[in-house]
């Protein structure tokens, strides 16, 4: 991609037991300002293969000198987060995509309630300065496990005062999502960033209480999880592409010089959609509707895989 931006790693700091923050500085020109909730895709040129992962920007959106991202070392890392934690050093240069945003706040909301789970606090780090500038009514509810995550909790608590609520499940404090939602006034929008279990719990509570689905917003970049190896066949050329257990279908296609438009590489944006003409799909994205998934003729290759040994793609 030609529109990538070259940045230098200006500093690295450990912000929680499993989370490292990277400050990326502009080399040539100033960086783009971005909108709160935006992310960049960072390219990691490992020896064996190039990893590309999306990370939310957590710096102030108006700061065009530097971007900050935070990377959690994933238990089942396919290498992306291990690479960031173990290989990247201060002074290294990295290529990143321009920011794009799939998780922007709705400014017409009367009140904003942010629910963060672990490293999911990152997009809200860029919401908060803008919320303060706009004098918006907001609250941050931060759920983490202090033995692993909980980055920025002290500074957030100090900065936000009574707008800040925290829940440490390693110390047995838990958030009662139903109680929290039932206290919210009309016109509140809810933003969730965290594990799928948190997103589901909030969606279920909202439905039980009678909150409209259109006020609930969530983002979860599902880092592509490994699976069984399979073969993808390209219908137009008959080409066979081997997808190893560790690679995503998108990565395997790219390695064979088949480029597919993509943006988030995490099953959220919908850019990479491909038509499947044969083979069962193991859907792992947040983009397709349940109906589309059941129909079984579209796949998001950045995260989803074949359920069997072979898939035929209409490209």
């Amino acid at each position: 991609m030609s529109n990538q931006i070259k940045v230098e790693v200006a500093s690295i700091c450990q912000v929680a037991p499993t989370i490292r923050e990277f400050t990326l500085e502009a080399i040539d020109d100033a960086l783009y300002p971005f909108s709160p909730g935006a992310h960049v895709v960072v390219e990691m040129p490992n020896k064996k293969k190039v990893y590309k992962n999306a990370y939310s920007l957590l710096s102030d959106p108006t700061d065009t000198q530097r971007y900050r991202i935070a990377v959690r070392l994933q238990d089942a890392s396919r290498g992306g987060s291990i690479y960031m934690h173990e290989q990247v050093k201060v002074g290294d240069q990295l290529l990143i995509s321009p920011p794009s945003n799939l998780f922007s706040p709705l400014w017409h909301a009367k009140k904003h309630v942010m629910l963060a789970g672990g490293v999911g606090v990152t997009p809200f780090m860029s919401y908060i300065p803008e919320m303060i500038r706009r004098d918006a009514d907001f609250e941050l509810h931060y759920m983490y496990r202090s033995l692993q995550t909980g980055a920025y909790k002290h500074e957030l608590s100090e900065q936000l005062g009574d707008k800040y609520f925290d829940y440490d499940s390693d110390r047995q404090t838990r958030c009662d999502v139903t109680a929290l939602l039932s206290q919210q006034p009309l016109g509140t929008h809810i933003y969730i960033c965290g594990p799928d279990s948190l997103i589901q719990a909030v969606e279920e509570a909202a439905q039980t209480l009678g909150l409209p689905a259109s006020v609930i917003h969530s983002e979860e970049f599902a880092a592509p999880k490994p699976g069984m190896p399979f073969v993808a066949e390209i219908k137009s050329t008959g080409q066979q592409v081997d997808v190893s257990a560790e690679d995503s279908l998108l990565e395997a296609l790219e390695a064979s010089d088949i480029s597919i438009p993509n943006l988030c590489r995490g099953g959220v944006c919908g850019q990479c959609v491909c038509t499947v003409v044969e083979g069962e799909i193991d859907h792992r994205d947040q983009y397709l509707s349940d109906e589309e998934k059941a129909a079984g003729n579209t796949i998001m290759p950045c995260v989803s895989r074949a359920a069997g040994e072979r898939l035929v793609l209409d490209i």
């Binding site: 939602l181 039932s182 919210q184 006034p185 009309l186 016109g187 209480l209 009678g210 909150l211």
Partner: peptide
């Protein structure tokens, strides 16, 4: 009436 209404209003 809506000044203090809850989010779950219909």
């Amino acid at each position: 009436l809506l000044a203090n209404a809850p989010a779950a209003t219909r």
